[in-house]
């Protein structure tokens, strides 16, 4: 990066530290923070959407749909997320390619031959000759989807509880005014449920932040992967040999996580105050008293 860094083994002291901390690998480490934040930013709304779909399905009067919604939440939540990540993504990838092969391949032989998964080259996602950037985007997309699926199950549970917590009287009043089921759902239930869902959802957000080390299992290089990689002992085969420095890298991560948690707590507390405003709950009552 800098000219002084051309021969790392001949420099020492501050220059060495500066060169070391700006090496290509460290730049990737810094970028991985962006990757993690981007993944969080994409996963949170996706998980919320899945949770909403799951909760709505669970409330449905159509029994199979209701069972599907409840089953999704119960099964995915019963399994530790790490175990889910270890086999689900490969299955998802193969499933998608199988579906594509039905559409694009001429030869429809069964693709699972023993342990090998074989589809025609046109059915690969992305195609073998696509540039690396597409492979990256696809891998990232799979990771976002898998995270959203797991956390969507938890969100479904929170939202299902929140929908049930909206006072019955409000819904009955709306019906008495002649609103249809859809109208009651859209105009009364959904706007009212957020205040009950927020504590659960904020905790879910905190769990999500701390689940990001599992990204590595999904093929995304996150901050923990890089901290482990950079901190490990380096022999002379590397440009910047050093002993085992994992402790320092992990302490840096600890600070990052604590700061990020603290910031999230502050923001969530503000949202909570706003949602509680004017609500007929204990929280709303406390706000009213504080203002008076």
């Amino acid at each position: 990066m800098f000219e002084a860094c051309a021969d790392p083994k001949s420099i020492e002291g501050l220059t060495w530290a500066m060169c070391y901390l700006t090496s290509g690998k460290h730049i990737e480490f810094y970028w991985s923070f962006v990757t993690v934040l981007l993944l969080l930013a994409l996963t949170a709304p996706a998980a919320l959407a899945m949770g909403f779909a799951g909760a709505t399905a669970a409330r449905s009067r159509f029994i199979p749909l209701s069972l599907l919604g409840k089953g999704y939440a119960a099964i995915v939540r019963g399994v530790p997320d790490i175990i889910f990540f270890l086999f689900f993504v490969i299955a998802l990838d193969q499933g998608l390619e199988y579906l594509k092969s039905l559409a694009v391949c001429e030869n429809h032989s069964w693709p699972w031959q023993g342990l090998e998964f074989r589809v025609c080259p046109e059915a690969k996602i992305p195609l073998g000759r696509s540039s690396a950037i597409w492979h990256q985007a696809y891998g990232f997309g799979l990771a976002v989807f898998t995270f959203a699926l797991v956390f969507g199950a938890f969100a479904a549970n929170v939202l299902y509880g929140a929908m049930n917590a909206v006072p019955r009287a409000q819904l009955e009043t709306a019906e008495a005014y002649g609103m249809s089921h859809g109208q009651v759902f859209r105009r009364i239930l959904v706007p009212q449920m957020w205040v009950y869902a927020l504590p659960g959802l904020s905790n879910l957000w905190m769990i999500l932040i701390k689940a990001t080390p599992l990204l590595f299992l999904l093929g995304v290089r996150d901050i923990v992967y890089w901290a482990r990689e950079l901190g490990g002992m380096k022999t002379q085969a590397y440009e910047y040999p050093h002993p085992d420095w994992r402790l320092w890298y992990f302490l840096a991560l600890l600070v990052f996580y604590l700061v990020f948690t603290k910031l999230s707590e502050i923001v969530l507390a503000r949202i909570s105050a706003r949602l509680n405003h004017g609500q007929a709950t204990a929280g709303g009552e406390a706000l009213r008293k504080a203002a008076a």
Partner: peptide
């Protein structure tokens, strides 16, 4: 698992 994010893919 298209481990491409993982991947330092280079020609």
């Amino acid at each position: 698992m298209k481990n491409l994010l993982l991947a330092t893919a280079l020609i």
